[in-house]
């Protein structure tokens, strides 16, 4: 077969190139002269390299496959296997036929590519949700009149609520810091020295505890007690007043 000369065309892939070679040589896709086609195929790849075109791996894979088919066909056949059977080209032929169909189909799409472009379509329209309001559909003025009558009837029988009834729920216990202070001071006067913890011994509620604590702070401020801490124990010590005792509560309030 004579040397084929072609301008270096860019192909979409190895199958595209193979189809081109088959067409060029005017051979049947169903009876590919593997030897010649393989040679031209490999020549083309060499040419691609010559032109510095990147040869993608897919081209090389097919080249290897073509060489494989070629070598398989050179090997003598054993047994009485009929010639048609087991033709190593069959699979390649099927692939080429299938690819050719889609290549032609691509042409069909190419011709129609802008077929719809002269027509304008609308985008999906945003449709305001339709509100079906039935809440006022059966209302008459009579309904309103009877409603206001009902309300005025109910008001007649309403009594003011007794505040005493809520005391247990929202009431606030009042504990005076002053009374606590007096208690602590009384104890100190008799015992002279007490443990800080002991002040809270008979305390029952949170408010009481807070009041007791504030009382202690108040006593410290008044210089009535001295606080000392050792080994984690806090002690309050009574300080005797030089002046008369009555003035010490002067600026203390609840």
């Amino acid at each position: 077969m004579k040397q084929i000369s072609f301008k270096l065309q860019i192909f979409e892939g190895p199958l595209d190139l193979l189809l081109h070679l088959i067409n060029k040589n005017k051979v049947s896709i169903y009876d590919i002269p593997i030897s010649e086609i393989t040679e031209q195929y490999i020549d083309y790849i060499a040419e691609m390299k010559h032109f510095d075109i990147e040869v993608s791996s897919e081209f090389l894979v097919l080249a290897a496959h073509l060489l494989y088919i070629k070598s398989k066909m050179l090997l003598p056949k054993y047994g009485d296997a009929p010639e048609d059977e087991d033709d190593p080209r069959t699979e390649l032929t099927q692939r080429l036929v299938e690819y050719k169909k889609f290549k032609k189909a691509a042409q069909f799409f190419c011709e129609r590519e802008f077929a719809g472009s002269r027509t304008f379509y609308k985008m999906r329209e945003y449709i305001e949700p339709v509100l079906i309001d039935e809440s006022l559909s059966n209302i008459t003025i009579g309904h309103l009149v009877s409603a206001i009558y009902d309300i005025s009837e109910r008001i007649k029988y309403r009594r003011p609520v007794n505040a005493e009834r809520f005391k247990g729920i929202v009431g606030r216990e009042v504990v005076s810091v002053f009374s606590k202070l007096k208690n602590v001071l009384k104890k100190l006067k008799t015992l002279k020295k007490i443990n800080f913890i002991d002040i809270f011994r008979n305390v029952k509620t949170k408010t009481e505890a807070v009041a007791s604590f504030l009382a202690v702070l108040e006593l410290i401020k008044m210089n009535a007690v001295k606080v000392s801490q050792n080994n984690g124990e806090t002690q309050l010590k009574y300080i005797k007043k030089r002046k008369g005792g009555s003035g010490i509560f002067g600026n203390t309030k609840d």
Binding site: K26, V27, S28, V97, K100, F108
Partner: peptide, 23 residues
């Protein structure tokens, strides 16, 4: 869409006859 097989039918007949001559 036109059936995919329609795209090649005439081609196959074409090339196979040519191929036959070649052989």
């Amino acid at each position: 869409l036109p059936p995919i097989d329609e795209f090649v039918i005439d081609e196959i007949i074409d090339t196979s006859s040519e191929g036959a001559q070649q052989t």
